[in-house]
């Protein structure tokens, strides 16, 4: 349904922002738990967030490549607003691609504090 899909659908559209949401939740929930229960494990937390970030970015890049294909590799310019199957596909493809770009940036921004955090605040 999500990958190797011939045509885009709402699931392929929603997948990249969902990955962003899950990554965001993971960073903050893991940070909260580590700081409350095991503040000395800050380096392990950093590694876990790095791994989650790479995983999320890989997923988003793959989804973006698929969306690029659904868009027809930019064969025609937006707005894709005529009532044809092709335009519907191109519209969903382009929207998904833009959401992929947004999600990728958001995932990177969300992970950045992990690089700089020096201690758990008392």
């Amino acid at each position: 349904m999500l990958f190797r899909s011939e045509t885009p659908n709402l699931w392929t559209l929603l997948a990249p922002p969902t990955v962003w949401a899950l990554h965001f939740l993971f960073c903050y929930v893991a940070g909260a738990i580590i700081c409350a229960k095991a503040p000395e494990a800050l380096d392990e937390l950093r590694l876990a967030i790095a791994a989650a970030t790479i995983l999320a970015l890989v997923f988003i890049v793959v989804a973006g490549m698929q969306a690029h294909r659904h868009w027809g590799f930019g064969s025609d310019m937006p707005p894709h607003d005529t009532p044809t199957d092709e335009d519907q596909q191109h519209f969903l493809g382009l929207a998904t691609m833009l959401l992929c770009a947004l999600s990728a940036v958001a995932v990177i921004f969300g992970a950045m504090p992990a690089l700089f955090i020096a201690e758990c605040m008392r």
């Binding site: 950045m112 690089l115 700089f116 955090i117 605040m121």
Partner: peptide, 9 residues
């Protein structure tokens, strides 16, 4: 972000 930990160093 770089500023924040420095403020408590």
């Amino acid at each position: 972000l770089r500023l924040m930990p420095m403020l408590r160093a």
